[in-house]
């Protein structure tokens, strides 16, 4: 079966690992992001790792004009069209507190930008009657808390969007997976205090691919975050509001 994947935010280490896993099973991959130099190197890397074809394409969540050309390119290929969304930005909450204007960019990067992209792609997926969307959210979207509630609320919005999209695409044989990673060992978390149980990006990518194969709806990765979040969500608001977790 021929499969084409668009990876949004392809320079992130989770996306890189996921792209490699796809390449090793012979997929065609469009690596979308802003750092074209890194993406071009990544495309060569994926081709050497077995991708049928790998190409770097310019994507900027804040520039909707960059969306359609990517979709056109992907739609020129045969087989299923799939997308994996790894974009998002998380300015430190204290910077946001000083400069609330940062909220808008965070929401565009983490929610409305990718949602708009997926909305452009959805009709094509419906026409082809299949395909999978992987949407990477965050456990931060499960409950608003003092440390990162702007980012968290954007990811919560994205998760709700994905649930709706799932409801829509199911009708045409498509599928949507919401992925909620816990702490992942990436350049973003490197050296940040308070990280625990950090997961290797390659293990996260493995989990995502398994979820794709098994048509899961919502996964936490590593799996135990489901239970951690279950507990965190179970704390009554009256108590939670006084905590700093």
């Amino acid at each position: 079966m021929q499969e084409t994947w668009i990876i949004l935010g392809a320079t992130s280490s989770m996306a890189r690992a996921f792209g490699r896993a796809l390449a090793e099973r012979g997929a065609t991959v469009f690596l979308a992001g802003r750092d074209m130099e890194d993406l071009k190197g990544a495309a060569v890397d994926l081709a050497a790792r077995g991708a049928a074809r790998a190409e770097a394409v310019k994507f900027d969540a804040r520039d909707p004009g960059s969306f359609q050309p990517i979709i056109d390119k992907a739609c020129a290929t045969e087989g299923t069209i799939n997308a994996a969304v790894f974009v998002g930005s998380m300015p430190p909450q204290d910077e946001i507190d000083r400069d609330p204007a940062l909220i808008e960019g965070t929401v565009i990067d983490s929610y409305t930008g990718p949602a708009r992209f997926l909305h452009l792609l959805a009709p094509e997926m419906e026409a082809r009657a299949g395909g999978t969307v992987v949407g990477v959210g965050s456990v931060a979207g499960d409950r608003g808390r003092i440390g990162n509630y702007v980012y968290g609320s954007a990811k919560a919005g994205f998760a709700t969007y994905l649930a709706g999209l799932r409801n829509r695409l199911t009708r045409s044989g498509g599928h949507v997976i919401t992925v909620k990673p816990g702490f992942v060992d990436t350049a973003m978390t490197w050296g940040i205090e308070g990280m625990f149980l950090v997961a290797d990006p390659a293990d996260v990518a493995d989990d995502i691919l398994k979820a794709v194969n098994r048509k899961k709806d919502v996964i936490y990765t590593p799996f135990f975050w489901r239970y951690i979040m279950l507990i965190i969500r179970a704390i009554p608001e009256r108590v939670f509001k006084k905590l700093s977790v």
Binding site: S13, G41, A42, V44, D45, A48, R49, A187
Partner: peptide
């Protein structure tokens, strides 16, 4: 360890 891209591979000569 995170700078781990393959930069080129030639299947005829086996040079990577």
């Amino acid at each position: 360890t995170r700078l781990d891209k393959i930069i080129g591979f030639d299947p005829d000569t086996g040079v990577v």
